[in-house]
């Protein structure tokens, strides 16, 4: 799997290791957050769906009652008021306003019905006959429309949530976070670690070589000095003049050694 995912094109440095580590952490938190969001939304979504189903059934009943109250009107008026009603309509008395509800960062509109006071286009309809039935019919229908508005809110929430959940789920599930970014970053971290280890090992080996060489050099120098001393002793025995100079060189050699071992 790791081969397929590949890794980020970075230089294997300690800095980029730090960078990658924070990126991994971010990706993991992000992923779990998204997952939680999607779960919350889905929960809400299921609830709404259930309520839509209920509300739609309820609507059937409510509308039937309303239609029946209209039948009562035509019984009382003894005629057709449809045309007159259509023509007298001017200003909507029954309106809706939308407010927002925040579900896990998604704004769902919620319709709220209200009636505009003072607007009544049909106050005098049925004045001579059937006015009381018309009044009752209006109330029945107003209640029915309230149910409809409620249902409309649910339905809009349903459509919006449906859309949002699709997007969120795509982000959660479409191998972007879970299957691409996180493994890729993990891979990169592994790669950087291994590269860094490799570098460490190389360095160690190099240093070992260096110190080995130094030791060989020292040994050679020691031997030389020893030889020189012997020679000097022999010369001293013979003449005995130069002894101090090689002593100083030896001190320098010592310092170099220290440096290497650090």
């Amino acid at each position: 799997m790791s081969g397929a995912v590949g890794r980020e094109p970075v230089f294997p440095t300690r800095q980029s290791l730090g960078l990658m580590k924070s990126k991994l952490k971010g990706a993991e938190t992000g992923h779990s957050l998204l997952k939680r969001k999607s779960e919350a939304l889905t929960k809400r979504f299921r609830e709404i769906t259930r309520r839509i189903d209920e509300a739609k059934r309820k609507m059937g009943r409510v509308m039937q009652i309303a239609a029946f109250s209209l039948a009562e009107v035509s019984y009382a008026v003894g005629g057709d008021i449809g045309y007159q009603v259509q023509e007298s309509a001017k200003q909507a008395r029954f309106r809706v306003r939308a407010k927002q509800e925040n579900v896990s960062g998604v704004f769902l509109p919620q319709f709220e019905s209200y009636t505009q006071d003072g607007v009544n286009d049909f106050a005098l309809t049925g004045l001579g006959k059937g006015g009381q039935q018309i009044q009752r019919c209006r109330e029945t229908y107003a209640r029915a429309v309230e149910t409809l508005v409620e249902l409309a809110s649910l339905q809009t929430a349903f459509l919006i949530l449906d859309e949002v959940i699709k997007v969120v789920n795509r982000r959660v599930l479409t191998k972007s976070s879970e299957h691409v970014i996180i493994p890729r970053t993990e891979n990169t971290i592994k790669y950087i670690n291994s590269e860094l280890d490799e570098l460490d090992r190389e360095e160690f080996y190099r240093l070992k070589k260096v110190s080995g060489k130094k030791q060989r050099d020292n040994a050679a120098a020691d031997a030389e000095i020893l030889a020189a001393r012997k020679k000097a002793e022999a010369e001293e025995a013979a003449g005995g003049v130069v002894a101090a100079e090689p002593e100083t060189a030896d001190i320098l050699g010592e310092q170099e050694d220290n440096d290497v071992i650090f």
Binding site: N120, A123, L124, G126, L127, G128, K129, G131, Q132, Q135
Partner: peptide
């Protein structure tokens, strides 16, 4: 009677 009853609450 009907006119009276139905006119309550209207601008008539």
């Amino acid at each position: 009677i009907n006119i009276t009853l139905n006119s309550f609450g209207t601008e008539l």
